[in-house]
Design a protein around this nucleic acid. Structure first.
Lengths: 297, 297
DNA sequence: TAAATAATGTTAAAAAATTACATTTTTCTT
DNA sequence: AAGAAAAATGTAATTTTTTAACATTATTTA
């Protein structure tokens, strides 16, 4: 790796630096990884250590620690500590509290709402804005956009369909896996295929990614980093969401995905500019007819 | 003031240091106050300055700045900066901030995530727990449960289907409005029909409520209070969600609805007891086969 | 007003971080 | 597989930053 290579995968300002370290661990060199481990093991103590102490603890030289910091797009060790402190400070008001067997309606309602919010906060910090921007770019230029997901993620894909459909963009969505495959086989270079999967381990979706790729489509994954699916994607929008509290279905991750789709859609309209948004308003107005009017309007 | 007097009024660890500076401004000495002013004027820049820079800006000597830090119960200047950084990070509880035309990806991403969280918080506070409890009761006793919604709310209904389907309960969902009507015409007194609509003003959904009601079904509305739909329902789970930031689709309200469905599902399983949940786990395990295993498991 | 005390500054020492460069390790090429 | 190139890591010196010790100045009070 070059002398001053900053980790390129992402250097978003809003991104929690701990997330950043975790996500890019594979991109670190051997010694840098040692530093990463030590910091992740006890970030709280790291912010109170000098570079010398940290170097000794990680069993590397001081400049290595310094280089580690720079790689994370900070100005140096003190600056890195500042960032780290800020990450730790986000004393997440909402905590991921698990529902307990003996909880009454009051408790479980609160817990579920709060842990959903907590997950969203975590997700927000793990999203790489640069990638968001690049994906929005792609979407605006796509000749056709496909959204695919399976199981719980299918509804997210469906949601994406609804959103982008209103933009009057050629957009495709299938629930059926065979249809998804067939659709991907007909892909061309103008196609953007967005695949949604929390774990990124669903075999058939990984296959679809491969099919789309061999047909020159750009494959965007909304999935967890370093998963098999992520490996097959051209771009990965990774969402780290805490282990699901929900015992039956991945709730938190789906909410995060939905929100991310919303972000993409918003980016899309912003990129398209004013006139486009006016059109959109007209589409919305069309729906009025099927509604009871509010009194006074 | 003594040599090493620490400000006594409050030295809570968790207290925002900016607050602390403001509150204790009167207790500072003349020079220290100068430092305080400069820091308060632009805390963001303060955390990136050296003690020398800050001293010059405040027009005091460096040790004065250092003493200022110690007075605030920090170990020294670097430690003070750490605290300050954390205070700045902590700020901004979630507010409903609207996306602006000129927002970059950084801004709109943050805004959307944060306003989603804000909406969830509002929604949480508006949910009536007693009604939740009663509805859970109803659902556990129902002979058949139907979930209907239109447009954006359709996906919420779909989600509900997925959740309750796993419980091995007779559950029904149709996207098509005619199918919904027909289904409601065949309702009996053991039926619970859950209707989802943000505004509660969609004509056809109100009609469905009426049909279900005349056929002795119990009608539960997840909608806004006092809406035409709410009027037709036996029970209303009202979700007050702030005006949508989203220009094209009701995003926040849908997230709130999904979360509420999750609450209902959770209540449902808790009511059903232990054995039931074990069954559920088995259903979940069945899905394993279609996945790539995580290494190590 | 003079002594006492607190506040502030000056200078020097210590600590910490960074740079420049040397050495080792890894990777790639032929 | 040997050797060249590139990358990674470390060593030592330099620079920056912070802190301590002490001197000076302002402020209070008896």
């Amino acid at each position: 790796m070059g002398k001053h290579t900053i980790l390129l995968k992402c250097n978003c300002k809003n991104m929690n630096i701990l997330e950043k370290i975790t996500q890019h661990k594979s991109a670190f060199s051997k010694s840098e990884r040692k530093v990463a481990e030590v910091i992740l093991a006890n970030p709280q103590s790291a912010i109170h250590s000098s570079i010398a102490t940290l170097a000794k603890m990680s069993d590397v030289s001081e400049p290595t620690v310094n280089r580690f910091c720079r790689r994370l797009d900070t100005k140096g060790f003190p600056d890195f500590k500042l960032h780290l402190a800020q990450s730790l400070a986000n004393g997440t008001p909402y905590v991921n509290r698990h529902v307990d067997e003996h909880d009454g309606p009051d408790e479980y309602t609160t817990k579920i709402f709060e842990s959903t919010m907590a997950s969203l906060e975590v997700a927000r910090q793990s999203v790489c804005v640069n990638t968001v921007n690049r994906v929005v770019d792609l979407l605006t230029q796509a000749q056709r956009i496909s959204f695919f997901g399976l199981g719980a993620s299918a509804s997210v894909a469906h949601d994406a369909l609804n959103k982008f459909f209103r933009f009057n963009v050629p957009v495709v969505y299938f629930e059926d896996i065979l249809m998804q495959r067939m659709s991907c086989m007909n892909c061309g270079s103008g196609d953007v295929v967005v695949l949604i999967s929390h774990t990124g381990r669903t075999k058939s979706l990984v296959e679809i990614a491969q099919i789309a790729k061999t047909n020159d489509a750009t494959v965007v994954g909304i999935t967890s980093a370093n998963s098999p699916l992520a490996q097959e994607c051209t771009y990965v929008l990774s969402l780290e969401v805490p282990e699901d509290t929900d015992m039956y279905m991945p709730m938190a991750s789906r909410i995060a995905q939905l929100t991310l789709i919303d972000v993409l859609a918003t980016g899309f309209t912003l990129r398209r500019g004013n006139k486009f948004r006016e059109n959109l308003k007209r589409v919305k107005d069309t729906l009025r007819g099927s509604r009871f009017e509010k009194r006074g309007s």
